[in-house]
Design a protein around this nucleic acid. Structure first.
Lengths: 226, 226
DNA sequence: ACAAAAGTGTTTAGATTACACCCATGA
DNA sequence: TCATGGGTGTAATCTAAACACTTTTGT
């Protein structure tokens, strides 16, 4: 279009902060960059936005390519557009974050990419502004966890309240009082107690819970003050 | 760069949700689009990201061009990238929102653009996805107002607690109890009472307050539950 | 003195926190 | 039976909300 032609066009990328939960830690999927510059350095999973897709589509595509998973939680974090953020060319990047269940992902694909799950407590340096992307994604995750009950995204269908508390402790990097956490969560009325117990952690065993199926978008009181 | 060359490049625009406060209403700066398609329809203020600037820079540039103001609050809202959102060409837009003091802006420039301040209570239809941009910006504004004290951005340096309450009522579209609002705000300890009174609204007059200057980024408790 | 807006105080209800205590079970 | 984590109860504290009351001042 004539009026637009005087303006430059730019490469537009998406970079995905893919988060999972394993061994009581939040983990981030990273892979070693396969080309120069910064070849071998750790990078988020990313790709370019094509002509026929939205950035949301592109992020979902990359997520599928690298983990085999579809229909998972995926949300914008922020855009990054410093002219020289990528030394090779001007690339404007839209950061996304995704919450996936590590137990469901396609390990084969992850291996193919040389990617690995790295605890956010021991992150290496990342290329470009990927560190900032992760930082903002973590804040978003905390906000989401504070306003809605994160569980199905990162835990199996069935989980104990202790597992849920451990997840929240990993997300907020702090302790929660066991009794108070349990009461708070149950008072939300979104969990259904099952008859089955997890006996792997104690003699007594802890009852499993699952999200009530009749609840769509959970719109609840805040869980965590911050 | 060879590796990137196989990917398409896109026009990248920024669109600014410029908000101000006047006559106890939040107002949005809109202008009638000056070219087809949708010529004459209401649009946010926008422009294209150039080669030598970040999107943040571009948003600040547009804000300066259209209001004459610099160094004002400006934050990302979200990106909009549906392939056909602009029927003329593929344009990926990064939405920003700005809070400005209407009393300080350059009315001359605004007139030149044919722009006007329109109350968010009586918004017309906007082109493309600009309505969504506004909606998300309003949510961001409410969040910001809930966690920090909005005042200096939208009100003059000196303001009464009644004016501040009216501002909050406009932002949240609901009433606040005068006594409770005042106590809550004062308990934050970020306002300084001045000796001057606003006598235009009552016989008794209401004391002016201003933000304490020694407070940088205000990091306070939540003001409003939502 | 009184109307009207500014500002203060009081009471209640609910939420958060810390922490003591009871329960169920396998070894 | 006892050690261990799972689970419940309770008192103290803090916050939000509703609303009655007092203050100030021009007319």
């Amino acid at each position: 279009m004539e009026l637009y032609k005087i303006h430059p066009r730019h490469y537009v990328a998406v970079d995905c902060v893919i988060l999972g939960y394993q061994d009581e830690e939040i983990k981030l999927l990273l892979y070693p960059r396969s080309f120069e510059p910064y070849k071998g350095k750790w990078s988020l999973l990313g790709g370019f936005v094509q002509d026929n897709e939205s950035a949301d589509d592109a992020a979902a595509r990359i997520l599928k390519q690298t983990t085999g998973l579809e229909q998972i939680f995926l949300e914008q974090v922020a855009s990054f557009s410093e002219p020289n953020r990528d030394p090779e060319a001007r690339v404007i990047s839209l950061a996304y974050y995704a919450l996936i269940r590590i137990d469901l992902h396609d390990e084969e694909r992850v291996r193919e990419n040389g990617a690995s799950w790295i605890s956010i407590n021991t992150l290496p340096n990342l290329i470009f502004d990927h560190q900032q992307m992760f930082g903002k994604a973590l804040v978003k995750l905390q906000q989401k966890a504070g306003y809605s009950l994160i569980g199905s995204e990162l835990l199996p269908e069935m989980f104990t309240l202790i597992q849920l508390r451990n997840l929240y402790q990993a997300i907020f990097q702090r302790e929660f009082d066991p009794g108070n956490f349990r009461k708070k969560i149950l008072s939300l009325g979104v969990l259904e107690k099952l008859n089955e117990k997890d006996v792997s952690e104690s003699r007594k065993g802890a009852f499993y819970y699952k999200l009530k199926s009749d609840i769509g978008e959970i719109d609840i009181d805040r869980i965590v003050k911050f």
